[in-house]
Simulated scan of single mutants.
Amino acid sequence: MSDWLTITEGDAPLILAFPHVGTGLADVEAGFRSPWLARRDADWWVNDLYAFAADLGATLVATGISRSVIDVNRDPSGASLYPGQATTELCPTTTFDGEPLYADALPDEAEIARRRTLWFDPYHAALQWQIDRLRAAHPSVVLYDAHSIRSHVPRLFEGELPPFNIGTNGGTTCNLALAAAVEAICMASGESHVLDGRFRGGWTTRHYGHPENGVHAIQMELAIRGYMDEPEAPTEANWLPTFDPARAAHLTAILSQIIEAARAFALQEA
């Protein structure tokens, strides 16, 4: 554990990763055009939303560094995860809406390498260590990559995002039975969902998800309106969302079923 990386270890064959809950701007804050913009696209309160998972024996890994500093869910080579579609870089230069993040100089290769050494590499070293630790005790492990996003981001997707967006990179990152179990819970909830739609799983899901080696990775991208009030147009005056457990209770109940199903799947693989 460090001042920017929080790890809660459990013994169940289940890891929840939170790559985008951080809002820390570290030593690069002065370079951003607006600290508010540099924090706006965080996955707000997602680690609080899934806090119950620790009681199920899950391991939780969360970074406190903002995705605007470095996105630990991007391909470190710089290759796009969604060729031909709008996205953001390893060290983003724009917001999701395309607004410039930097006032002047953009991060150059040396600066990107520095940020990777300081934050990207240690985050993934921690994830790999936890996977290896649990694989030593269990035949299979589920890595659940937890995310959220505003319901409307026209630059990234058309219309309104469904509440549940499941990503398995076309069924390659986990056993189909795991994806089916998660999808069935979403269907039974009465809320809309999509499997491998606009969000098919980021670098974390694609990099670690090797079901043939006993590591099943799945991403869940939640539309943020499912657990808190979402303004139609976020501004600096209205966009510092607060987390209200009572407001989120409906979604938390569904997510509890999903996490329990993921845990049960991993245990059944023994």
Rank of each mutant, 00 (worst) to 15 (best):
Y50G: 14
A51Y: 15
F52T: 10
F52G: 10
F52Y: 15
A53V: 13
A53I: 13
A53Y: 14
A54P: 07
T59M: 04
V61F: 06
A62N: 09
T63M: 09
G64L: 03
G64E: 03
S66M: 08
S66W: 10
S66P: 10
S66E: 01
R67Q: 06
S68A: 05
V69Y: 03
V69I: 04
I70H: 09
D71F: 07
V72F: 06
V72A: 06
V72T: 06
V72S: 06
R74G: 09
R74Q: 09
D75P: 04
D75V: 05
P76Q: 12
S77R: 10
G78I: 03
S80N: 13
L81R: 11
L81S: 12
L81I: 12
Y82W: 07
P83K: 11
P83D: 07
P83G: 05
G84V: 04
A86Q: 05
T87P: 01
T87C: 04
T87L: 02
T88V: 11
T88P: 00
C91I: 02
C91S: 06
C91M: 01
C91V: 09
P92S: 10
P92C: 09
P92R: 11
T93R: 13
T93H: 02
T93N: 01
T93S: 02
T94W: 11
T94K: 14
D97C: 05
G98Q: 14
G98H: 14
G98R: 15
G98W: 13
E99T: 10
E99Q: 11
L101I: 07
L101P: 07
Y102S: 01
A103R: 09
A103T: 01
D104V: 02
A105P: 07
L106Q: 09
L106A: 06
P107G: 01
P107Y: 06
P107E: 00
D108E: 01
E109S: 15
A110N: 06
A110F: 00
E111F: 03
E111L: 11
I112M: 10
I112A: 12
R114H: 11
R114E: 12
R115P: 04
R116V: 14
T117D: 15
T117V: 15
L118P: 14
L118T: 13
L118F: 15
W119N: 07
F120G: 03
F120M: 04
P122K: 14
P122I: 12
Y123T: 03
A126M: 06
A126S: 11
A126R: 11
A126W: 09
W129C: 05
W129Q: 08
Q130D: 00
Q130A: 03
D132I: 03
D132P: 03
R133G: 02
R133K: 05
R133C: 03
R133A: 05
L134S: 04
L134E: 02
R135E: 00
